[in-house]
């Protein structure tokens, strides 16, 4: 292997090995860590974030961001709760909740992708606005008690696997297909890395991000409903800080915040890394306050490593530094 190949290989698989190492350390430190029930708990605790991470990572690959995910989640839960209280019935209420998420996503997408507003400003507005709207609708009161059928969404199991994990795996599978096997993956890299070129080649540089925002809104709403189901209540605290957890997994997974570079497998490992780290630290009785510090440190470490890799990569590019031909324009060829 050449040095370049070693670099690429470690860059691609570094996070995976960090994850394996982390699991090894925790397994050694606590006998309860590497057990099927505990692994299921880790997946379950991260399934909701995982759902939202998939379209979120695609947006970042396109050079965009959605900070409004947590607020869309609570708004969807609250709209669902109000609809249930008004007697719309379970299916209609769920559709209303999901619909409100898609609508907010379409609103984000229209302003950002079609009209060209700043993604940070618009979705930061959504972060405040959607949660504010949820609080206004409920006046701060939590509605609760949606019956056993709705409880299945958050607490049910299919063949022994919790429903949220199944939903997450379905979304992940669709995401992986689109990222690696469909033209969309390449188009997103082109949009995030060289938007003008992408447009010149006929790639829908506005519609792709638009639909990604709609997908992000839908995934956030689904996440909100899952949490509401687990709590059996549409609490106004649902989704608080969710945007940061989503971003942490994506950036830890190595997706460039400026767009055009990243892998969804990496993001999946980033998500698991955060999940394993939080769970493992609790298992070995480390203060929960330290957990946040550890995640922060991991993120900074990943950013530093990424910078290092980019520097090394740049050195590897065989730039031929020859002097330009000593012929001035227009006078060449005259002997």
């Amino acid at each position: 292997m050449t040095r370049q190949q070693i670099l690429t290989w470690t860059q691609r698989n570094g996070l995976f090995f960090a994850l394996v190492l982390l699991i090894a350390i925790f397994s050694f430190a606590s006998s309860r860590f590497l057990t099927v029930p505990n692994m299921t708990v880790i997946l379950l605790q991260n399934a909701v974030i995982g759902l939202i991470v998939v379209p979120g990572a695609m947006l970042i690959l396109c050079g965009l961001v959605d900070l409004s995910v947590g607020s869309i989640a609570v708004l969807a839960a609250v709209v669902f709760g109000q609809a249930m209280d008004s007697g719309f019935g379970l299916p209609v209420s769920m559709l209303l909740g999901l619909g409100v998420g898609m609508l907010w996503g379409a609103f984000n997408g229209y302003l950002i992708a079609i009209l060209g507003f700043s993604p940070i400003i618009i979705t930061l507005g959504g972060l405040a606005g959607a949660r504010g709207l949820a609080e206004f609708i409920t006046q701060g009161f939590t509605t609760y008690g949606y019956g056993p059928q709705f409880a299945l969404l958050g607490n049910g199991k299919l063949l022994g696997v919790p429903v949220p994990i199944i939903l997450f795996l379905i979304v992940l599978a669709i995401g992986l297909h689109l990222w690696y096997r469909a033209p969309l993956g390449r188009h997103m890299i082109a949009i995030g890395g060289a938007k003008d070129t992408a447009a010149e080649l006929g790639i829908p540089v506005k519609l792709v991000p638009f639909w990604l925002y709609v997908a992000s809104g839908l995934a956030s709403a689904l996440g909100g409903l899952i949490v509401a189901s687990q709590l059996d209540g549409a609490a106004v605290t649902i989704g608080t800080g969710m945007e940061l957890e989503v971003l942490t997994a994506i950036l830890l997974g190595g997706v460039s915040f400026t767009g055009g570079r990243g892998s969804l497998f990496g993001v999946f490992f980033g998500l698991l890394f955060v999940g394993v780290l939080s769970n493992g630290l609790i298992q070995i009785n480390v203060s929960p306050y330290v957990e946040q510090v550890a995640i922060g440190a991991a993120l900074c470490g990943a950013a530093a490593l990424d910078m290092l890799y980019q520097r090394l990569e740049r050195l590897q590019v065989p730039v031929e530094r020859e002097p330009n031909e000593p012929v001035a324009q227009g006078t060449g060829g005259s002997q």
């Binding site: 390449r186 890395g193 060289a194």
Partner: peptide, 14 residues
């Protein structure tokens, strides 16, 4: 050309 894509991906982009 898109620098982040390989030669095949660029040739077939779009």
């Amino acid at each position: 050309l898109v620098p982040g894509l390989d030669i095949v991906e660029n040739i077939f982009l779009g």
